[in-house]
Each structure stands twice: as C-alpha cells, then as structure tokens.
C-alpha cells in the first residue's frame, strides 16, 4: 500500500488552525470523523496520544507522522494536514513541524500499515516536494502535487 492508495481530497486540510500539538492532533482526527471514516473520536485520540507518550512522532525537516493501531477504525486511513506556521511537536531536530501525516490502522493490517508508513517516509524525503506542500494553498493543490 502506498500513499496514493489512501490519499483522498476530503482527508486533506490546508491550513490546519491548531497551534499546539494536541490541537493539531484533534483537528486531524476531526477531519477523519467528518469524512465519516471513523466515529469514535475519543478512542482514536486516546490511541494516538498513547503512542505519542512513548516518543514523539515529530521527525525532521518539518515532518510529523503521528500513527496508531486501533480497533476504532475499520480500514487504514491517512489524514494530511499542513500548518501555515511551524508547530512545536517535540520533533527530533528540535524544529517546528508543518506537515502532518496521521495514519490509523486496524489491528490486522500490519503489512499494509508498514508499507504505507514507509511510502510516506520516502515521499517526504524529497526536499522539493516538502517545499511545494508547505506552499500549497488548499487540498486541490496538494492532490495535484501527489497525482502529477
């Protein structure tokens, strides 16, 4: 499974309004719930925050990939959010994060989940793509960048 297989326009939010780590996570989950991909908002948030307490999923170069495995979702889902300004996400490089890829998976899709996370890591290794994503003004522009 690749990023392209699960990326949907309704699951992209540009810009995110949250200014804290928790606010961003809540906003990403709300996108998922509003798109009717899941209903149990609190259970989803609990799973994501439980994973964050083990170690931040804020990586380097402005990327964060919060993720969790949970019974509260029936199929692997991705929400992509982009903030206008960097957010303190306890990233590995100590810098702020702007590109948030929330990945949630049910308990029995381990292979596809691992491949999706690796696909996101590979895609975001491109500095030019990161710059273009951060400059994107809306979800349509983001979709065009991935489906060019």
């Amino acid at each position: 499974m690749r990023l392209h297989d699960v990326l949907e326009r309704d699951l992209i939010k540009v810009p995110l309004n949250g200014e804290t780590k928790i606010a961003v996570l809540e906003e990403l989950v709300d996108v998922l719930v509003q798109a009717k991909k899941a209903s149990n908002r609190e259970e989803l948030l609990s799973a994501i925050i439980a994973r964050e307490t083990l170690g931040s999923t804020g990586l380097v170069d402005g990327i964060a990939i919060p993720h969790a495995k949970t019974k509260a979702i029936s199929s692997i889902s991705l929400v992509l959010g982009i903030t206008k300004k960097p957010i303190d996400f306890d990233a590995q490089d100590g810098k702020g994060s702007q590109l948030f890829f929330l990945v949630l998976a049910p308990e029995k899709e381990a292979s596809a989940y691992v491949e999706l996370l690796a696909s996101i890591a590979r895609a975001t290794s491109s500095a030019s793509l990161r710059r273009l994503l951060i400059a994107a003004k809306n979800a349509d522009e983001v979709m065009n960048l991935f489906f060019d």
Binding site: R2, H4, S119, R122, A123, S126, L129, F146, F147, D148
Partner: peptide, 10 residues
C-alpha cells in the same frame, strides 16, 4: 496499481 505519479519514490 495505476500510475499516479512520475515520482520514483511512489
């Protein structure tokens, strides 16, 4: 899958 992108990493 369908070819969605010219990017090699995809």
């Amino acid at each position: 899958s369908h070819i969605h992108s010219r990017r090699d990493e995809m």
